[in-house]
């Protein structure tokens, strides 16, 4: 009984201290964004890695997500004779929900895990220590470019995901299942409001912040050699995925 209580107390202590460290890490990183000079070369490198190199993946997943949503939507709407509302169904689900969430999850898997591993390897090979010895702030040099790059690339990739998804839905709904092209787009444009678009944008921005924050934190404080880096990478991907879904629920309930 005593051992169980002690284990619980240790777990609570560890969780709270980890949350505290993560909070301090985020606050420090956000403060460092406004400290000049911005590492432009590093920023462009990160935008290329997180954004440009994820483009094909986002196009591919966006297209198939739109196609599946159109198929499922058409099957459900046909029961009530509402096939004309396929456009709004596809558009709203992609803009408000699927675009931000799925694109964030895909980027987490492709780029977030790699960023954690890269920072983790820099930690265990003392490259981060070397920056500190050179009197350079490793958070400003390594983390800030990633943070800024995710804030730039996540909304853009989300937009690509949504546009490609809408055309994927068009392909299935209009070209394959015979919904009128006019009603697909006209119903969509009348149903989707700017609030929906802004909502999707806010979501993708906050997901970008979550991915940069968690992946950088886990990599930055990786320890215990290769096993530690592997552990940090797994933890980062799992934590990002869960946080994205939980945070999505809260945002959906207030936006």
């Amino acid at each position: 009984m005593f051992t169980l209580a002690r284990s619980c107390a240790r777990l609570i202590y560890f969780t709270l201290s980890e949350m505290g460290r993560m909070g301090i890490f985020l606050a420090t990183s956000l403060l460092q964004i406004v400290v000049p000079p911005l590492q432009v070369t590093q920023l462009l490198r990160r935008i290329d890695f997180i954004g440009a190199r994820s483009l094909l993946l986002i196009i591919f997943t966006g297209a198939f997500t739109g196609m599946v949503v159109a198929f499922q939507g058409y099957t459900a709407l046909r029961r009530f004779g509402g096939e004309a509302f396929l456009g709004p169904g596809v558009g709203l689900s992609l803009i408000r929900e699927l675009g931000p969430v799925l694109s964030a999850l895909m980027i987490t898997g492709r780029a977030g895990s790699a960023l954690t591993a890269e920072l983790g390897i820099m930690r265990i090979t003392e490259q981060i220590d070397a920056l500190e010895v050179m009197a350079l702030n490793p958070i400003r040099y390594l983390v800030v470019p990633i943070l800024v790059a995710t804030l730039i690339t996540f909304p853009l990739l989300n937009a690509v995901f949504v546009v490609v998804g809408i055309y994927g839905g068009y392909l299935v709904g209009v070209e394959l299942l015979g919904v009128s092209a006019g009603s697909y787009f006209s119903q969509m444009s009348s149903a989707v409001t700017s609030a929906d678009v802004w909502g999707g944008l806010y979501k993708s921005l906050s997901f970008g912040l979550i991915v940069a924050w968690v992946c950088c934190f886990k990599g930055f404080y990786a320890a215990r050699g290769a096993e530690g880096v592997s552990h940090a990478t797994t933890q980062a991907v799992v934590m990002c995925s869960v946080l994205i879904l939980v945070w999505d629920y809260f945002l959906t309930s207030i936006l």
């Binding site: 490198r45 390897i121 820099m122 090979t125 003392e126 490259q127 220590d129 070397a130 010895v133 009197a135």
Partner: peptide, 21 residues
């Protein structure tokens, strides 16, 4: 002040700690 002091130091790490990129 810590950074000013560190500017007076150089360090050769065990594995070199060269930046891979």
């Amino acid at each position: 002040t810590l950074n000013d002091m560190r500017s007076r130091f150089g360090m050769l790490f065990q594995g070199g700690a060269l930046f891979d990129s």
